[in-house]
Amino acid sequence: MFNQAFAGTTPLQGSDIAVQWDSLYNFLVWLSIFFFVLVVGGMIYFVFAYRHHPGKKTQYITGSHFLEAIWIAVPTLLLLGIFTWGYSVYHSMTQAPSDAYEIRAIGKQWLWTFQYDNGRTTVGEAYVPLNRPVKLIMTSEDVLHSFFIPNFRIKQDVVPGMYSSVWFTATVPGKHQVFCAEYCGTSHSGMLAKIIALNDEQWEAWNNHKKLGAIPEAGSDFSSSSSDLSASRVVAQVSLAEQGRAVYETKGCLACHSVDGTQKVGPTHKGLFGSSVEMADGKVLIADENYIRTHIENPQKNTVKGFNPVMPTFKGLINETEMNALIAYIKSLK
């Protein structure tokens, strides 16, 4: 009963995290009601009990260390408990499982584009498998945006020039609303998207480029006015990594880097992704998406140990979709 009392005030529980989030939220609401009644109820009682009338006397009280100790100690302990609970849920929000299905998201004024490993690109709709962890690796082409899925209780700012990520496991099939939550100009409130959680059958159909039927809103049994899915996506013939190979070759990466392990002017990219790389100044970095991006756009910032800082910057020469493909390709060089 306690957990159902505020059911209408929060969105549908579309993921496991949402269930955890709601438990903590409900606890805080009850705690707040308790303290509100304590303070404001006490105040209202005093208003009636100690109203002035002629001849009334007050009691001369200037303080009580005992009471002060209580109202310092009790809130402190409660707050530490709330903090711990909040951090533990947050921790599970941020730790994406390593087998998560990865999608690359690009925000720009005022739409969201999604790139998949199979080479597809969709706009305004992200197709994800149900009951499987999904990780979005996000960046922005222009200003700050924020990727917010209320049904999953997650949100992450999307920052130009770097990658941030968010992950979730959708447990309810259908469409889940996405909002941009960081103000980004004129059509900020129109920068909407949907996460479309597909069951196994639909997921297979989508991966095999078959047409899907109408997908309803999450939580409803009726098929709402679903748009024609094929219209909103560009069907690509080659995988994202294959697209990345084309970028790799046309931008001239092969002049200095190899994909087969031989060392040229620059380090090889075979087996690079996910490895620990030592820099010239001794620090060790993990080669993730941000590592590759920084080394392409700002190669002089950190030079790999044993190599000369001779690489030119490619900043402004590779757009965000190309960058995502390029990273997918380098990632595929196991």
Binding site: Q20, W21, L24, Y25, L28, I82, F83, W85, G86, Y87, S88, V89, Y90, M93, P150, R153, I154, K155
Partner: peptide, 9 residues
């Protein structure tokens, strides 16, 4: 809002 997970949403 001070509670990490709650603030995210």
């Amino acid at each position: 809002l001070a509670t990490l997970a709650i603030d995210v949403h």
